[in-house]
Simulated scan of single mutants.
Amino acid sequence: MDSPWRSNGDWLRAALHTHSTSSDGELVPRAVARHYGRAGYDVVALTDHWHRSTAPSTPELLVLPGVELNCALPDERDGHVLGIGIDRDPTELEGERRDLAATGEWIVAAGGVAYLAHPYWTGARPGGIELPESVTGIEVFNAGCELEVGRGLSSVHWDELLEAGALCPALVTDDSHHPGFDSDHAWTWIRAERTAPSVLDALRRGRFYGSSGPVIHDVESGEGEVVVRCTPARSVTLLCGRTSGTAVNAGRLGYRYGAEVLETTADDWIVAARLDLPGTAPFARIEVVDPKGRRAWTNPVWPA
């Protein structure tokens, strides 16, 4: 998995899970794209249910066609899979609900990148999902699911996959159906050129991080440690598996565990921290929480 902070390209703010009137959204595809363009986004993927929606790109906004397909998960759960960047309509599937691997294979054959959507909202058990080769990763946070029923955060599902050796990246999305109400709550920062091939390659290789607020300026991993620089934060945590991890918390009496604060703002919020990286950790990823409780999530990081 590539580090976005050590890659070439621009930082592109992306909305990768949106819906229009082509399925169950409130605005037509062009209006969805314009809405996100006005909000300062660089990339939007139109991911209607069982329909490939399109809208014209502009020099400022890259619009990717996509889809959200149903699939069969273990325990007879109904899963949803995002297909970002597909080049043909899924009408040939005739609504057929295939298993996760076969659904991902169709998306890949159609030129797209597959991600398992909102597993917590779906009701999938943590540890009960095996990610096939055809599916790149999952959504770790879905703002729409969080707003509706409080089931938008799938970090335990992600950690179980990472613990089992599936070192996959994870998206952060709105899943917007009603722009203006459930939009601009969560997004993915992609390191890429403003072209479809470059963005899709970055999604395949994990050159991005997700956020609902904080900006992560840099993550530098070396032997035995990780240094994080970010916008003001109340905590920075390195999650390293079921039994290990390190963290710093803001304030004069803020708790530190296997880590140290390197720099703070005048009012004592953290903007740089060094965290110990245990050599036996099966994976390592970072979460940053800002003073308002909003989060950012990196993909797994490893010593350089």
Rank of each mutant, 00 (worst) to 15 (best):
R52E: 09
V140C: 10
V113N: 09
F141N: 01
S20T: 14
T188G: 12
V108Y: 02
V271D: 04
D78W: 10
H157A: 09
S244Y: 00
E130W: 01
N8C: 10
L16Y: 04
A109R: 15
G152T: 03
S134A: 15
G279C: 12
G210E: 05
R295K: 15
D99A: 05
V172D: 04
L61H: 07
G213S: 13
S235I: 02
P179L: 10
V108A: 15
E68D: 05
A192I: 09
S20A: 11
L153A: 02
A247R: 12
G210N: 07
S53L: 10
R274Q: 00
A272E: 14
S23M: 08
Y115M: 04
C240R: 01
W158N: 00
G104I: 01
D87Y: 04
R274P: 03
S244G: 10
E163M: 07
R234A: 12
V28S: 10
A247E: 06
R151W: 01
E96Y: 02
A233M: 07
R38I: 05
P291M: 14
A117M: 02
A250S: 15
W11Q: 11
P232Q: 14
P300V: 06
G127H: 00
A273E: 06
A31Y: 04
G293Y: 13
R151T: 12
L167K: 04
S221T: 15
G210H: 04
S134G: 09
G144S: 10
S235K: 07
D175Q: 05
G213C: 13
A202R: 13
T47V: 11
A196G: 08
S183G: 14
G279F: 05
A266M: 13
P65S: 14
L203T: 13
V63W: 11
A124I: 10
G127K: 01
E163G: 09
E60L: 11
A281G: 03
H185D: 02
G213M: 13
D48N: 14
R151G: 00
V288G: 04
V67Y: 02
E133C: 00
V43G: 08
I84T: 11
R252V: 13
P4D: 13
E287A: 13
L239Y: 14
E76H: 15
D218M: 09
N70D: 13
A114G: 12
P65F: 08
T18V: 06
D99Y: 04
I129T: 06
E260M: 03
E133S: 14
Y120K: 07
S211L: 09
F181Y: 11
S3W: 03
S57H: 07
L73Y: 07
S154G: 11
G206W: 03
G83C: 08
V301Q: 03
A202L: 14
